[in-house]
């Protein structure tokens, strides 16, 4: 009924236009990555893989990829672990100052990233420590922790306490209860949190640009420094690889977790 009204058609059309706006730049990056010519943007002069091959032979880009992957994985590991512990405290315990602490832990979302970047770098300078890979990891943990907290808490709130109490009645100790009951129920949230922090870390540029050094470049930082000259098919190719990686990972994870839960 509704689907045939003119109003609904207009809404549909509007949505398509907005999505055209959002996705054209992304699609164009991928298309242009196959452009064989060296200068200028359009027109396409055939299809070639030469820029991808060039990327694969560029050791500084390979290094940046390695850095980004390790950084993302470490960030996801640390921030998901400490995020789960904190979420357990918020959902399962009552204690004074709970709301204040929750707000404090979520605060990084509301602080401009540029300030976050400067602040941490300044602190490091005060301690007279050089920029290092560790700085990137701790910085990214602060950036991603709030998101992990939000996702895990939402999920943990939905798990009934009864299961845990039943396990305890049956003689399980707190650690066993966590391992056998709480953690499996929490697993989807853990994966979602880890994945989300990985993608945030992998993609971040605003704060990372302050923290990265010449030895510790990430892929977005590399793209940024390549953009200094001008846009080129090589940058588009690097962008295309990034897009495929960051879009495919969550899709694959979602697909696998769905398949996994169905088989169970």
């Amino acid at each position: 009924m509704k689907s045939f009204s003119p109003g609904w058609t207009l809404i549909k059309l509007y949505t398509i236009l907005v999505y055209l706006f959002l996705f054209t730049p992304i699609v164009v990056v991928i298309v242009l990555a196959f452009n064989p010519k060296q200068f200028g943007i359009f027109p396409m002069e055939g299809v070639s893989l030469r820029w991808f091959i060039k990327l694969a032979h560029n050791s500084s880009i390979i290094d940046a990829f390695k850095n980004s992957l390790i950084l993302g994985a470490l960030t996801a590991l640390v921030s998901t672990t400490i995020g789960i512990l904190a979420s357990l405290a918020f959902i399962r315990f009552e204690f004074p100052g709970k709301n204040t602490i929750n707000t404090m832990l979520l605060a990084p979302i509301m602080i401009p990233e540029v300030v976050l970047g400067v602040a941490l770098l300044l602190f490091l300078r005060f301690l007279q420590m050089p920029k290092s890979f560790a700085l990137l990891v701790v910085g990214h943990v602060v950036l991603t922790l709030p998101y992990v907290l939000l996702i895990v808490q939402a999920r943990l709130g939905g798990i009934r306490k009864d299961y845990e109490e039943a396990a305890k009645c049956l003689g399980a100790n707190p650690f066993q209860t966590f391992r056998e009951v709480t953690f499996p129920l929490l697993l989807p949230a853990v994966l979602a949190g880890a994945l989300f922090s990985f993608t945030i870390s992998f993609d971040d540029i605003t704060a990372t640009l302050f923290w990265a050094s010449a030895q510790n470049q990430t892929v977005p930082v590399k793209i940024f420094s390549m953009l200094r000259n001008s846009i080129s098919p090589e940058i588009n190719a690097l962008g295309a690889v990034m897009i495929v990686l960051t879009v495919a990972t969550p899709l694959l994870a979602g697909y696998l977790s769905r398949k996994f839960s169905k088989e169970k």
Partner: peptide, 18 residues
Amino acid sequence: MLPFWVSFIIRTMSWINI
């Protein structure tokens, strides 16, 4: 969700392509 997964710098620089 999809746009969130594409790096900010790529989405920004692609306006040069356009």
